[in-house]
């Protein structure tokens, strides 16, 4: 699955998107990502699944659009 990355998280991933093997739930995905990028554990971010802010136990459909959003800083 392809994840879109924004804001300061792009410094950790080194890109604005990242491809990883599918994860069943948000917490599975976060666990996998935090193993690869341990710095993520210190970051505040929302996980968006198909335009909605997802909770830890929410499942991730295989074709979902997933995005990681740190706190906003526009304006």
């Amino acid at each position: 699955m392809r994840i879109r990355i924004f804001g300061n998280l792009t410094d950790i991933f080194g890109a604005d998107n990242y491809t990883i093997e599918p994860a069943a739930t948000v917490s599975d995905l976060k666990e996998k990502l935090e193993q690869i990028f341990p710095q993520l554990r210190n970051c505040v971010y929302l996980t968006i699944v198909n335009d909605e802010a997802a909770q830890e136990n929410d499942s991730i459909p295989s074709d979902a659009e997933v995005a990681l959003l740190p706190p906003y800083s526009g304006g």
Binding site: G7, N8, L69, P70, P71, Y72, S73, G74, G75
Partner: peptide, 27 residues
Amino acid sequence: LVERLKKELPVWGKEICNDGSHHWKEN
């Protein structure tokens, strides 16, 4: 309008300094 858009819009600002370093803006 200004308060809401700063708080609610998924937009990020990367401050770029004269030595090429950067910092992520915080509202």
